[in-house]
Design a protein around this nucleic acid. Sequence first.
DNA 1: ATTATACGTAAGGTATTTCTTACTTGTCAA
DNA 2: TTGACAAGTAAGAAATACCTTACGTATAAT
Lengths: 106, 106
Amino acid sequence: MQQAEPPDVFNAIAHPVRRQILDALRTEDQPVHVLAAPFAMSRPAISQHLKLLRDAGLVSEMRLGRERRYRLEPTRLRDVADWLAQYEQFWAERLRNLGAYLESTK
Amino acid sequence: MQQAEPPDVFNAIAHPVRRQILDALRTEDQPVHVLAAPFAMSRPAISQHLKLLRDAGLVSEMRLGRERRYRLEPTRLRDVADWLAQYEQFWAERLRNLGAYLESTK
DNA sequence: ATTATACGTAAGGTATTTCTTACTTGTCAA
DNA sequence: TTGACAAGTAAGAAATACCTTACGTATAAT
């Protein structure tokens, strides 16, 4: 029974290591050993996180000699941005309320 | 050894049930039995999701008779929004690139 | 007072996640 | 060619996540 896993972006960015990997790719494409360097964990562990990020569509991979260069693919982050956008009106409301409160206690 | 768990908002919103709960609270404060109703899972399971959301600071609880009314506390979603904001420039860049590409192939 | 409702917490089972080490493949360097 | 480097995959251990049922407590209704 093999249901094609939905690329769950929310789940992909839930892990701090994976967020840090994405952050590292913000500057520039990077090979795995560079991405793995900052972490106190084995390189295969990073490879596995990268696979998950790949499956989520958040990064792409290109072979370059014996390296594999990873590139940030940020478009899927829209899912998160869109979801968040529904709450922005709430923030605005909160700020108005706070403003009114501060006004009233002045 | 008891390290105070960091309220991990990213982790809190990773689970679809928890996102749906937050969505339900966007309209209005709700008691647990109302929040639980749409889900094909036991009420205690929902209680546990609510505890996680509470610990993450995403909802607050107030007793009201025998109910507990939950309220959305969206401010902590800023963590996510701030993180995402770092990628927005990337989207803009992508759009520019796409624009240039479309222009070049016209 | 008794019973029903709303909810949390406890305990436990199972699935999933996230590591590890061992191994394989492909590429570059001597 | 032989050896070193880059990186993926496999298998398994350990931790965590997420559900269930059972139970306890507080409030409301009869």
